[in-house]
Design a binder for these strands. Structure first.
Lengths: 333, 333
DNA sequence: ATGAAAGCGCTAACAC
DNA sequence: GTGTTAGCGCTTTCAT
């Protein structure tokens, strides 16, 4: 026996037929205790492990789900993936990850093709960015899918973090402190607009405040530094809402380098509640997003889709404001 | 045709035999241009996609590798996984991730079993922590494996970041600044000792400096705060080397809360060069670890093992010291 | 309760 | 070059 033992090796060793071994394995039908014991002993002796490939081939019930993501290492992405993985593992699913780094059509196609080639029970797409959006569009309709993201959408099962509501609440908090308006630094959005920007604008409009143009940062926290310096140079800027904590940290550094203090001169708020946010100086006011929970909820929706359960297809959760020391009332003029 | 089209649907549609379609697919043998075109048209029409399960079953050349990791979201882990994934994808491999959260025997077994059930070309294990070490011990010998880690080891192919050398260099730097000794805060080690601790101790010993007991932190950056406060209370402490940047940030916060300044009163250095390290106040002296590169190198070694190439089985890289502003000469007494 | 036979979708081996 | 035949490791009939 050169390679791994197969089911027929087990059958031979136990002195039973192959289907009987299969029955023991799957528990699908009754097997007499005596034979069951023989089979189990043979399995243990041989170190036998069933082949998922052969199983998926014949039973058409793959136990693998694919996660498609534009990134795996940034905080929100990594935590969401972790949440999916934990929920999936708990229910006996294996997880496969495909990274689609750009929305470039060729790259998306290649990645999707490679993934869909696998026997998949379903797919979870992190629709956080343009690659995610592009990937979602390519998944064939007959495969169960769930989208995870910050922006609500109609057609597919989707788990959402209501970023717009949270951003609105945060902006209102800033306005309530007495700021005449709030400036906004965006992280790269998944589409023309994103929930954080939408909520921010909504709060400003409702309060009748000026809506200054949003400033675009990249995902690199360092991109916030120059933006912070520029913001510091504008005396109209008293409060800044950043698209994520990392950018906020860059912006704060830029503001500090320009000689202003936070929050005395300018209030800065972030988004995500990165584990380092509370350790920052000053500790960062932000919005706690339960990414791992998003992942878990997403997996549940995917399971519903896989099982054909006609259960809920949507799940929304409202992120929670975390007030710390980087925001305060504007200084009197 | 209820489900997905199969290779025989394609063959029927193109008016050729099944193996001919297979030959077009794999490029393994010559097919006349005419038939090739027919086949390609049929594939496109049907939206046919070969089944990786069936392929792996018969060809015994799976194109999937598994990554086994104790965590997916912490910086070093996430970056390493990203590096493996990118390298693997570039060579046509799909990546599957298994998380083993604890070294608990049952959990490790379950996770490994579930993974090995898949048709796998090979496995990459992140041997950063006890779960990784435990998992590594469970991989059957006939499966290509690579270990990625900070500590050199003999028997398996392994890609390494020479943390001991880097930690030694960093400690020497601190000693060279005039500190009588350097205190050390450890992150949870993968075994009794880890490279960072080893390098630190080696430098101290060689310099004839005191070797204070190492203090243990958890992975949570907040665990550093209390440690920082305690360290600040000890007047003998003038320099602290932390096992990673996040802990260093917690420690710095604790020291600052205790009323001391960095680096004037106490120098603090980290490890990893987290993207936020240079934005911290003061910017953190640390060691840049190329985790993504570690992942890439690891994948190459794994490929060697898979292909049976008798190429190198080890790859070491020396992390690079990054001097910033959190370390300085001790203040004169 | 159990075995024999069939077949999942594909590639390998062998004719021609 | 191309078709025919076999068979990967397993589950699913269908007998018994």
């Amino acid at each position: 026996m050169a390679g791994n033992p197969t089911i027929s090796d087990v059958a031979a060793r136990a002195g039973v037929s192959v289907p009987t071994v299969s029955r023991v394995l799957t528990g699908a039908a009754k097997v007499s205790p005596a034979k069951r014991e023989l089979v189990e002993a043979a399995i243990a002796d041989l170190g036998y492990r069933p082949s998922a490939a052969a199983r998926a081939l014949v039973s058409r019930k793959p136990q693998t789900i694919a996660i498609i993501a534009g990134n795996t290492s940034r905080y929100g992405y990594a935590e969401t993936i972790r949440g999916i993985e934990i929920a999936a593992r708990a229910e006996g699913y294996t997880v496969m990850i495909t990274v689609v780094e750009s929305a470039d059509e060729d790259e998306v196609d290649r990645a999707i093709e490679a993934t869909l080639t696998q026997p998949l029970a379903g797919v979870a797409v992190l629709k956080f960015d343009p690659p995610g959006v592009a990937a979602l569009g390519k998944i064939p309709g007959n495969l169960p899918v769930v989208a995870l993201s910050g922006v609500r959408e109609a057609s597919l099962p989707q788990a959402v973090l209501d970023e717009a509501a949270a951003a609105e609440e945060l902006t209102e908090h800033l306005l309530g402190l007495g700021h005449r308006t709030v400036h906004h630094v965006r992280v790269p959005p998944s589409r023309r607009t994103d929930g954080r920007t939408t909520g921010w604008r909504r709060a400003l409009r409702r309060a009748g405040a000026d809506v200054p143009p949003a400033v675009d940062a990249t995902w690199d926290p360092r991109s916030g530094v120059a933006i912070g310096r520029a913001l510091a140079a504008d005396p109209a800027v008293t409060a800044v809402f950043c698209g994520n904590d990392e950018i906020a940290m860059g912006v704060m550094r830029g503001i500090t380098e320009a000689g202003l203090r936070i929050p005395a001169d300018i209030s800065v708020a972030g988004f995500d509640d990165n584990p380092l946010a509370e350790l920052w100086s000053p500790p960062l006011t932000t919005v706690e997003q339960d990414f791992a929970g998003l992942g878990r909820r997403g997996f549940q929706l995917l399971r519903n889709a896989i099982d054909g359960t006609d259960a809920r297809r949507h799940s929304t959760e409202r992120p929670r404001l975390v007030l710390r020391e980087s925001t305060a009332a504007p200084k009197p003029r």
